[in-house]
């Protein structure tokens, strides 16, 4: 495990003076009576990849899902504290959750294409959000999204075939294409490579690095190498608390906290 070398691949693009794209202040999440997340303060910088790491059950996915209110779909789930997107409180009752999710897209752990054609998969988001004005527009969005997701060359001749017929890695890139087709500002990725083989993983990681130019990305990952390879900022969660956050290279080379140190050296997790 060569953490140092891995960390240096991702060039830091921190712009310290730019305002954060998203910001969580004292975020807590309850599932019924049980509190799963405690007082998380985290800034998500624009056009950066922020990775959330930590052992299973540490609350990193919970935090991620609270960023586009996917937690709303779970009965009895309650979020306290404040999360802003460009200074707007996303839990404000005046916010339409559907619009929020159009701006903060999500890619899931297991590839979950709709059992429809590849074209329909990508076109669905633009259609419901009224992004395309006509068929040519829609075609253009679908094509460019597939191109950006690095899938175009593999599927350009079979856009009408079902998306479920693709391989696992292709399916996940299809899901990424589907997510970026609505032109979100932030892209949330919940362990996007955990169901994939190493080669497919490498392709996706490369893709994430390219997407960073246009999107702000938050990724939950189990693999520290992956966090080191793709992200500029890393946040370490443990037992529902945010233990440490900072530049990825700092976290991996010079963690301030003992628990972080234990985790990245493999003693907990």
């Amino acid at each position: 495990m060569s953490l140092e070398s891995a960390a240096t691949i991702a060039a830091p693009v921190s712009r310290p003076n730019a305002p954060p794209k998203m910001q969580g202040e004292k975020v807590g999440v309850f599932y019924g009576e049980k509190q799963a997340l405690f007082d998380v303060d985290l800034k998500i910088e624009q056009f950066n990849v922020t990775s959330l790491i930590g052992p299973s059950g540490c609350g990193k996915s919970t935090f991620l899902r609270s960023l586009n209110r996917m937690n709303d779909t779970i009965d009895g789930c309650r979020v306290v504290g404040k999360i802003t997107l460009d200074h707007d409180d996303i839990y404000d009752p005046a916010i339409d959750v559907v619009e929020l999710r159009a701006r903060v897209g999500m890619v899931f752990q297991k590839p979950n294409p709709f059992p429809k054609s590849i074209y329909e998969n990508v076109a669905y988001g633009p259609k419901i959000h009224g992004i395309a004005r006509n068929k040519a527009d829609l075609d253009e969005i679908v094509h460019s999204s597939l191109r950006r997701a690095g899938l175009w060359n593999e599927v350009k001749d079979r856009l009408q075939e079902p998306g479920t017929g693709l391989s696992g890695g292709q399916q996940q890139r299809l899901c990424i294409a589907r997510a970026i087709a609505t032109k979100p500002e932030v892209l949330l990725m919940d362990e996007p490579c955990s169901a994939l083989d190493p080669i497919a993983t490498a392709v996706i990681e490369e893709l994430i690095d390219e997407l960073r130019e246009n999107f702000t990305i938050v990724i939950v990952t189990h693999s520290m190498q992956q966090a080191a390879r793709v992200s500029q900022k890393t946040a370490f969660f443990h037992l529902g608390k945010l233990i440490e956050e900072g530049k990825t290279e700092d976290i991996f080379t010079n963690p301030k906290n003992k628990q972080t140190q234990d985790y990245i050296t493999g003693r907990i997790g």
Binding site: N68, M70, T73, V98, E99, L100, R101, A102, R103, G105, M106, V107, F108, K110, N112, P113, F114, P115, Y124, G125, I128, H129, C175, R178, A179, A181, T182
Partner: peptide, 17 residues
Amino acid sequence: PPSIRSAALGIGASRMQ
């Protein structure tokens, strides 16, 4: 499967959609 539901919600479909 629930994954289809989260896929739709994740790109900003309303529950009705």
